[in-house]
């Protein structure tokens, strides 16, 4: 397997943050971006709650042309402006993680740029969004802990700004999700709930 943009550690690697590979799946953790240029690459995100993942999978036309480019980012917060500081930017685990990729406003442009730099045409991908869970409101409708819904709004706004339609999504609610991608599709398993085929 060759992964463009980022040199993912080999399957034997295992750290609690990067996770490396589990079988054929690459476990993607917060602040991580991966772009794969070969077929049969599978991504997995475990127990996703308020965070959000954006997945770009090749369309059938791309696959038939032999272009198996795919990518994913896993973000925790919507906007880095005034939030990302020198003090909280210490999370550098490996080359696939960057502190700014914890933020939707930095991670999505980086993903788009990475896909284009590998020859991808953004509108040819199938775009999938998952995550954005949040606790119940409190204190008469107080919603200050609505990071989940603001993550989703930020992603949707950025993708719309680039004219990229979302073809599958599992967002909101208050349940954790585990997401599996394969070249042919995406499945989301809600913890304590149903399994949903998004694509």
């Amino acid at each position: 397997m060759t992964l463009a943009v980022n040199n993912i550690p080999p399957p034997s690697g295992d750290s609690s943050s990067t996770k490396a590979f589990e079988g054929e799946s690459l476990v993607v953790t917060p602040g991580q971006m991966v772009v794969a240029s070969t077929p049969n690459v599978c991504f997995k995100v475990e127990r996703l709650t308020s965070g959000v993942v954006v997945v770009a999978l090749p369309s059938a036309a791309m696959l038939s042309d032999g272009k198996a480019l795919s990518g994913m980012v896993h973000c925790s917060l919507p906007d880095s402006t005034s939030v990302l500081t020198a003090e909280n930017a210490s999370r550098v685990v490996d080359e696939t993680h960057r502190p700014e990729w914890l933020y939707v406003d930095c991670a999505i442009p980086a993903l788009l740029e990475a896909l284009e730099s590998q020859g991808g045409v953004l509108v040819d991908f199938r775009w999938i969004v998952a995550g954005g869970a949040q606790p119940f409101t409190f204190g008469g409708g107080n919603n200050t802990l609505n990071i989940g819904s603001r993550n989703i709004q930020a992603v949707q706004a950025l993708l719309a700004q680039h004219g990229l339609p979302v073809v599958g999504e599992s967002v909101g609610s208050n349940k954790a999700r585990t997401l599996y991608t394969q070249p042919a599709g995406v499945t989301v398993q809600l913890l304590g709930g149903e399994s949903v085929i998004l694509l």
């Binding site: 127990r47 709650t49 308020s50 869970a133 949040q134 208050n174 349940k175 954790a176 304590g192």
Partner: peptide, 11 residues
């Protein structure tokens, strides 16, 4: 909210 060790009780 960070999703660490979260179970079926979720959020």
């Amino acid at each position: 909210m960070a999703g660490v060790g979260i179970g079926v009780d979720g959020l």
